[in-house]
């Protein structure tokens, strides 16, 4: 019931924040954080975790989360850019998925219209196969994809999303035609996972967290991660360590509306700096299993600009975006 399921998810919710301790001038900040997605998803969880950490640590006096779901964030960003202009107390959570979604949706509003503030977290993609699959590692998969990309079916998230991009890059990296991969998008995490567990597809690709409990239970085999090297808390090799030059992270970040002053921008960046160093935030990262990928201010702006160009190239090379 995937299509109607999202209907239940829709919602614009603001949770009145628990008033934090007033400790400094910046603590007067009353933030409004937009999660351009329905409650429950990754962006929403990021926004609500920020809300919790910001108010509990006293970095902001209050923080309110507003959900504006729709089309990979396209609806949210349009509203954010139009109604938030010049407001130094607003933030929007976004991530790599939005970069791709804005391109595939041909959104009239782009990320260039926002003011980048900071990248917060990252999650790496995991490639998994059913436990009884003949594919034992990434090299086996590479050989299979190279032999006939049509016969290797991939289950992952929405078309043009990070899962799809990673699958296409994998094919490209191992010398197969990335436009010929047999990628099957599923809309809910559960449905894709069921297809992988049931052996309906060859390989599954998604954020590591989606598969964690199945891997630990021995129902799925982890054959590769898209991190640069082996991760300390995960028992599995990266693709790079197996000789496949693919590195991609599903990062999440916050941006501010257009037209804010330099002081307002600095205040927001400072607040994020403090958030990143706070004990509360560190604890949340640990509890949720998110990797700290902190990058703020101009460095993040540069990264965002580069990633947009790179993503567009990838999407065009796999035929998901034309021109």
């Amino acid at each position: 019931m995937i299509h109607t399921r999202k209907s239940l998810w829709r919602g614009a919710i603001a949770v009145a924040a628990v008033a934090g301790f007033v400790t400094s001038a910046a603590a007067q900040m009353e933030l409004k954080i937009m999660a351009p997605a329905a409650p429950g998803g990754g962006w929403d969880q990021t926004a609500r975790s920020m809300q919790q950490a910001l108010t509990q640590s006293g970095i902001a006096k209050s923080a309110q989360v507003v959900n504006v779901p729709g089309a990979g964030g396209s609806v949210g960003i349009a509203q954010f850019v139009n109604s938030g202009k010049g407001d130094g107390n607003q933030l929007m959570v976004m991530g790599y998925v939005m970069v791709g979604a804005l391109l595939t949706n041909k959104s009239p509003v782009t990320l260039d219209q926002t003011t980048p503030i900071a990248r917060l977290t990252a999650e790496y993609e995991a490639l998994v196969v059913p436990a009884d699959s003949p594919i034992k590692n990434a090299k086996d998969l590479a050989a299979a994809v190279k032999a006939d990309p049509a016969k290797v079916t991939w289950a992952g998230g929405s078309a043009g999303g990070v899962d799809h991009i990673a699958a296409a890059l994998f094919a490209k990296e191992v010398g197969a035609d990335p436009t010929k991969i047999n990628y099957i998008p599923f809309s809910g995490g559960g449905e894709a996972l069921a297809a992988i567990l049931g052996g309906k597809v060859t390989v599954g690709i998604s954020g590591y967290g989606e598969f964690e409990s199945q891997i630990k239970a021995g129902k799925l085999r982890l054959i590769g991660l898209t991190s640069a090297t082996k991760l300390p808390n995960i028992d599995g090799q990266s693709l790079k360590d197996q000789g496949i030059n693919l590195e991609i992270a599903n990062w999440r970040a916050v941006v501010a509306p257009p037209g804010i002053t330099a002081e307002q921008k600095k205040a927001l960046v400072d607040a994020m700096d403090k958030l990143n160093k706070s004990k509360e935030w560190t604890e949340i990262l640990k509890a949720k299993g998110w990797d700290d990928a902190y990058l703020s201010g101009d460095a993040f702006a540069k990264f965002l600009a580069e990633d947009q160009v790179r993503t567009k190239e990838v999407l065009m090379s796999v035929g998901l975006v034309k021109s």
Binding site: G11, A12, I13, A14, V15, A16, Q64, V66
Partner: peptide, 8 residues
């Protein structure tokens, strides 16, 4: 809605 359910 706003006070009990914190729904805006």
């Amino acid at each position: 809605f706003s006070k009990l359910l914190t729904l805006s």
